[in-house]
Design a protein around this nucleic acid. Structure first.
Length: 423
RNA sequence: GCGGGUGUCGCCAAGUGGUUAAGGCAGCGGCUUGUGGUGCCGCCAUCCGGGGGUUCGAAUCCCCUCACUCGCCCCA
């Protein structure tokens, strides 16, 4: 087993966890379908160009985190590092906007070549929502509220919604020049990373984690002061709507986010229980992405939640795994046939049944039955077969009304056994 | 790409130069030739991430390497 191990940062999802994932996914689906969203599934590999153009050449994701390779035809391909660009591409390609605005969700693996650490893997999973072709502030509020309510429903506590407005392209352009000038005057005081960023992406210096730079930035021009009247009104109205929905938020003027396509609304939902990678959900408005990729100008907003991070935070009720309803114990050839048959019949009416395969002693089988967590054991041995009977035993005391632990049914009256199971 | 930490059975874990590598959990078998959750007994690493070296002798010291992990950057 020395060579054949998983690639770094690629994680197996083992049976012990898959049930929790399914629960989360099922809750997500409920939320999405209530909100009238439709699912979209796109390939996990795209032309490299889609991401470099869509996400932005200057971003970390494109600059150093993409899983890119040439296929046998010499085309440069990339494992998707995020979902939005693919969704945008698909919408343009299939002319979906001719049918009106698209309200979509997606789920699946994403790939980023980074050093793995807590809450970060190279293959990770996002579940995301995109409202494409919607410009109104209500759509921002709606998108945010879907994320917020979903996370709350999963049982996450101590979440913070951080909110900012990046303004329009024009706002940002003016601000960027101003900021650049301000920073250049203080070039020597900046940390190395930030010095490099001045030319490429000065906005990103704003959320530098370097303490000295942070201090310095206290007096830097704020993007907020450069927002046009329209942008400001927009931002104010969004806050207004969130207030109405009783969704608490914290304005964070330094929140810029690492993908180029955002404008106006940008937000993150964070938790202090995640260690260093605090963001569980991130998103924003991307009014220029679709046109950037060759479509019509199409205002849009979306977000993505990291499944792995979500599951780190999920409540115990999501994480506990389900036991079978009934454990079937049997010994002997005839019993085996009957056991298989009974299991099948009970399964057909939606009971979950675990059948013992060991052929070991009853005592052993009972121990296993107990460990399985099942409430009931059905015991089928030679005596039972001879008498045409089934013995059913209660393994746990929950809801034991009549005080009895053992029940005997004839094989002909399975309905009585089922009635007992339902008590 | 750059820092810090760790690497002994499926999981947890003792052992820090002296040769049979504790223990617990899980697993398997038995006590109990048909009845559970307790208890008791037995089995379960010729090997200590890998490769070199030092030594009479190493899991324990040195070197290299790999993997995992936490953090930086950035993000989900």
């Amino acid at each position: 087993m020395t060579n054949l191990k998983n690639l770094r940062g690629m994680v197996d999802l083992l049976p012990a966890q898959s049930e929790s994932w399914q629960k989360v996914e099922s809750i997500a689906r409920t939320h999405f379908s209530r909100a009238g969203l439709k699912e979209i599934r796109t390939p996990i590999i795209e032309k490299t160009e889609l991401f470099s153009r869509g996400i932005g050449e200057g971003t970390d994701v494109v600059g150093k985190e993409m899983y890119s390779f040439d296929d046998r035809g010499g085309r440069s391909c990339t494992l998707r590092p995020e979902g939005t660009a693919s969704v945008a591409r698909s919408i343009i390609q299939h002319g979906l906007l001719n049918k009106g605005p698209q309200r979509l969700w997606y789920e699946g693996p994403m790939f980023r070549y980074e050093r793995p650490q807590a809450g970060r893997q190279r293959q990770f999973h996002q579940i995301g929502v995109e409202f494409v072709g919607l410009a109104s502030v209500i759509s921002d509020a709606e998108a945010i509220s879907i994320a917020w309510d979903f996370l709350k429903d999963i049982g996450l506590k101590d979440l913070t919604l951080e909110l900012n407005s990046l303004g329009s392209n024009e706002d940002r352009f003016v601000f960027k020049e101003e900021l650049k000038e301000w920073l250049e005057k203080r070039f020597d005081l900046l940390d190395e990373d930030s010095q490099k960023r001045i030319k490429v992406n000065p906005l990103r210096i704003l959320d530098s984690k370097n303490n000295d730079t942070k201090k310095l930035l206290h007096d830097a021009p704020s993007l907020n002061d450069f927002l046009s009247k329209e942008s400001k009104t927009r931002f104010d109205y969004l806050q207004n709507l969130l207030d109405d929905l009783n969704i608490p938020y914290k304005i964070n003027y330094k929140l810029v986010r690492g993908l180029d396509y955002y404008s106006h609304t940008a937000f993150e939902i964070t938790s202090d229980h995640l260690g260093s990678q605090a963001t569980v959900c991130g998103g924003g408005r991307y009014d220029n992405l679709i046109s950037e990729l060759g479509g019509q100008k199409t205002p849009s907003i979306g977000w993505a939640i990291g499944m792995e991070r979500l599951l780190i935070l999920a409540s115990d009720s999501i994480l506990t795994s389900r036991s079978p309803d009934v454990y079937v114990i049997h010994r002997g050839l005839e019993s085996e046939k009957l056991a298989l048959n009974i299991a099948r019949q009970l399964r057909s009416i939606n009971f979950s049944i675990e059948l013992d395969y060991s052929g070991s002693s009853f005592s052993k089988q009972f121990k296993r039955a107990d460990k399985s967590g099942a409430d009931w054991a059905i015991v089928i041995g030679e005596n039972e077969v001879l008498k045409g009977q089934l013995k059913m035993k209660r393994l746990r005391n929950i809801g034991n009304k009549d005080g009895s632990k053992e029940y005997i049914f004839s094989t002909g009256e399975l309905d009585k056994l089922i009635a007992k199971l339902n008590t």
